[in-house]
Design a protein around this nucleic acid. Structure first.
Lengths: 118, 118
DNA sequence: GCGATGGTTCAACTATTCTCGAACCATGAG
DNA sequence: CTCATGGTTCGAGAATAGTTGAACCATCGC
């Protein structure tokens, strides 16, 4: 009955390390993946165009980095795999981090009386 | 009369890149530096013990990484240099990020009815 | 069983990053 | 001017991370 030998290992919520999470998010391709996954679980293949036309081995490697940092979960489902954001775990351990990272960057040209110091 | 040839270059607030900032913060030594600088400007020498007994060239390298990502400012002052956090710029471009990163990690053993999903 | 599909893992190579000593530079004190 | 101090920059080696094709594995349809 243990038909799920395709299960990958995921760190527990209590084992998440902030610097590891930040590192996982510090790559443009990976951040793009995380952003698209934020809308809901998607299959691995759906991450491909988001990360920018990369071979599947490269994509799989990025997913591994995100998974081992505890940012995403990768679960087998039928013949495919579904990737989902570990939002609850991340929010519990690092409140506000995900919201800040997922938010689109503020407009640099905003009407703010910035203190220009050359 | 341009006595300030020791000025280092800093990116403008509008040029800050999220992934670069995340990368700069993804190193334990650098994050420790940022946390100690969060209490107010300190001199470079004061960062040394925080980052853990590293030679000054290594410390300088970490400060450069943080500075080029726009996380800190490094300004000459007399014979020394003062390191300060670019809190306003970071808050403007990436609201909530700094607060999330500077906050101590939540207690993993907190009494939360976590949804255990193995 | 057989083949096609969806993904991971392996191995090798390249590219970045880290680390640290040595050299260097400006400033302030005497 | 000369010396000590506080830090940056340079250069080289070690370590880590990214990229990719090929091999492999499990599942589904027939």
């Amino acid at each position: 009955m243990s038909g799920t030998s395709r299960e990958l290992t995921h760190p527990g919520a209590e084992d998440l390390v902030l610097t590891d999470v930040l590192f996982a998010l510090s790559d443009p391709s990976r951040l793009a993946i995380v952003r698209s996954v934020a809308d809901g679980p998607i299959e691995v293949a759906a991450c491909q165009p988001v990360a920018g036309e990369i071979p599947k081995s490269t994509l799989s490697h990025h997913l591994k980095t995100l998974r081992e940092a505890g940012v995403i979960r990768n679960v087998p489902r039928g013949r495919q795999r579904y990737v989902s954001l570990r939002r609850e775990d991340l929010d519990e351990r690092f409140p506000g981090l995900l919201d800040a990272v997922l938010a689109p960057a503020a407009d640099p040209a905003a009407p703010v009386p910035a203190l220009d110091q050359t």
